[in-house]
Write a protein that binds this DNA or RNA. Structure first.
Length: 580
RNA sequence: GCGCCUGUAGCUCAGCUGGAUAGAGCAACUGCCUUCUAAGCAGUGGGUCAGGAGUUCGAAUCUCUUCAGGCGCGCCA
């Protein structure tokens, strides 16, 4: 219907006296015909007259009057009215208005999906937490957000791949390994434990699990702790060296055991959070600098050959300033070790080479200073930096019993994602993570998420869904021979559902906008509005005591509402409830 | 100091590529359960959209500036 109207509008604009092609194009691009906010403003609204007036220096109200006349003559609509500063409000014939309901019956779970992203291939990399401990509630937000974005883009026809980058190489894994070993032999070291080692209870569990099937036997435990630096950073590095020297076989066994144990538990947590990845990419697969044919060596060699990277003070630097970074960045340290940045450059090169149109990276907001240098590296590698879209996710503060839950990764005190799932359930957790724009601080109230008040939007929406579901069942039981149809609504004999129908027609646009802006919270707010309209309707109208004819229409409409809620929740990875 | 983000009702937040009287929920006050789930509904009060200037027929939205808050600025990861 909107396309039909737009064609008529285009005709009208082209016929304005003295207009040229350029202005026509600008007006049509900038103007917008859309579903009106509410029924007081008709079914559809266009602002084209105001846009045209501003460009052509005309009076918007007069122009609107003319368009009103033109559209009314067509006899396509029930009524067309110029209103306010120059809007055109269009009221459709009932059969056009309710067409969306037939669509929903036909499309069911597909209602709201589109193909505006068809032909596009996008990769989303998210979570990518270091495998040095369990996922905590901070990671949960990135997980919920990334997964929702993936689903939303898929709903617009985009080809989406979701990937987790596992930092399984580098110093932090050495620290993990050392932490586990020291924990195992701690008693023989007078309970010595390095300041910068990981302290969480999971370290002890991994150690216990390891020695239940293996043995650690060192000739001299004490040699590990000889002459240690008082600087915590140096201390842990010395211990790592000592342990490797003492027994490299044991070191490697503990390392791979610890890694696989943690990665396994991360995968499990994400599975229970209903987040699925298409790829798990190991940092270690990029190879080592010492290997000339490894990806990490190749990417650095290419940068040097292309004149983007250079040697200075014994280190290899990348010129990132040309892309707006404030200083050049080191790729290879003067001691020959690669930096974390070097791995990331190689990883992004790998992703670029895989041929995606867009790369979406979802990072913690504390990494925003890192964006420029990655963009710079992408340009240095010969790609457009616009291919990379970085979305930042702010930390979530947890509140329990009205108090903020303290968290500190270093001390091993944190609220894990698993605890959150066990406390309020994966669906409620996902919902609240997505209930606010990702790049803003979120206060996550655990008590609210479990409360049975209207303030708990999660249940408010679920409640609407469950009420309709139950109503449909009752209708079937009481009237087994009655089918559902839209006769009463179409003939305007029953109008109480109109506001609901009008709200439903907005849904496909909400999904599109959510995809365009990568903002899942738009869907949540839409679902709340739709639920609110439903609860209001439900309170004022006793469905099952209506006439058969009315009931047949009402159940038809309400089923469509339920389907829309269900689709909206599904796109966020949340299961609708049939009973509460 | 530089960079990024934020400032909308007492509180928590929506507000679309600038558009119609700036919206919800909570809290406060008032009503609605012999009928389909009261985890619900209806109503009342509450705003210099942080301040100022500019662009525009029109600004919470765009630009500049001031103020306030958060975060980031390693040959760490």
């Amino acid at each position: 219907m909107i396309e039909t109207i737009n064609k008529k509008i285009e005709l009208f604009i082209t016929n304005i006296d003295g207009i040229n092609q350029d202005s026509t194009k600008i007006i049509l691009d900038k103007s917008n015909t859309s579903i009106s906010e509410d029924l007081n403003k008709g079914h559809l609204t266009t602002n084209v007259c105001m846009i045209a007036a501003s460009i052509l220096k005309l009076n918007p109200k007069e122009l609107a009057k003319k368009l009103e006349k033109t559209l009314n003559k067509l006899d396509l609509f029930k009524s067309v009215q110029a209103a306010g500063p120059g809007f055109i409000n269009i009221t459709l014939h009932k059969k056009d208005f309710i067409a969306v309901l037939y669509n929903i019956v036909k499309q069911k779970g597909e209602f709201g999906k589109s193909n505006i992203g068809a032909g596009k291939k996008v990769q989303i990399e998210f979570v990518s937490a270091n495998p040095t401990g369990p996922l905590h509630v901070g990671h949960g937000r990135g997980a919920a957000y990334g997964d929702a974005i993936g689903r939303i883009l898929q709903a617009t026809g985009t080809d989406v791949e979701k990937e987790y980058y596992i930092n399984d190489a580098g110093r932090q894994i050495d620290i993990l390994t050392a932490s586990v070993i020291i924990k195992i032999i701690q008693k023989d070291l007078d309970n010595f434990f390095p300041q910068n080692a990981y302290k969480g209870g999971y370290i002890e569990s991994i150690g216990e699990e390891f020695i239940s099937n293996n043995k650690i036997k060192y000739d001299s435990y004490n040699s590990i702790t000889y002459d240690l630096s008082s600087d915590p950073e140096e201390e842990i590095d010395q211990i790592i060296l000592n342990l490797k020297k003492l027994d490299s076989v044991i070191w490697n066994e503990v390392k791979s055991f610890s890694l696989s144990s943690i990665i396994h538990s991360i995968k499990n947590d994400l599975k229970d959070f209903k987040v699925n990845f298409d790829n798990w990419f190991d940092e270690s697969s990029l190879g080592k600098l010492s290997d000339n044919s490894s990806e990490i060596s190749n990417s650095i060699t290419k940068l040097i050959e292309d004149g983007k990277a250079y040697e200075k003070d014994g280190a290899i630097w990348l010129n990132t300033e040309s892309s707006g970074d404030d200083k050049h960045r080191v790729l290879v340290r003067d001691d020959g070790r690669a930096t974390y940045f070097a791995s990331d450059v190689a990883y992004h090169k790998n992703k670029l080479d895989r041929g995606y149109d867009d790369l979406i990276n979802i990072w913690g907001a504390d990494h925003h200073g890192y964006i420029k240098r990655i963009e710079a590296s992408i340009e240095a590698l010969g790609s457009k930096k616009e291919r990379l879209i970085v979305k930042l996710v702010q930390f979530a503060n947890l509140f329990k019993n009205g108090k903020k839950v303290k968290m500190s990764t270093r001390s091993g005190e944190f609220f894990t994602l698993r605890e959150l799932i066990e406390d309020i359930g994966a669906d409620a957790a996902r919902f609240y993570y997505l209930s606010k724009q990702a790049d803003q601080h979120l206060d996550f109230d655990l008590d609210l998420a479990k409360s049975d008040s209207k303030e708990n939007i999660f249940y408010y929406i679920q409640y609407a869904h469950a009420r309709i579901f139950s109503l449909e069942q009752k209708f079937k039981e009481m009237n087994p021979s009655l089918d559902i149809n839209l006769y009463a609504v179409e003939k305007d004999l029953y109008k109480e559902c109109d506001a609901l129908i009008h709200e439903i027609t907005k849904y496909p646009e909400v999904v599109k906008r959510s995809a365009r802006t990568l903002q899942p919270h738009l869907i949540i707010f839409y679902l709340r509005d739709l639920s609110q309209l439903f609860h209001s309707y439900y309170n004022d109208n006793h469905v099952l005591s209506e006439s058969n004819e009315n009931m047949q229409s009402i159940v038809f409409c309400l089923s469509a509402v339920r389907q829309t809620i269900s689709n909206g929740l599904d796109i966020l990875g949340i299961s609708p409830m049939q009973k509460m």
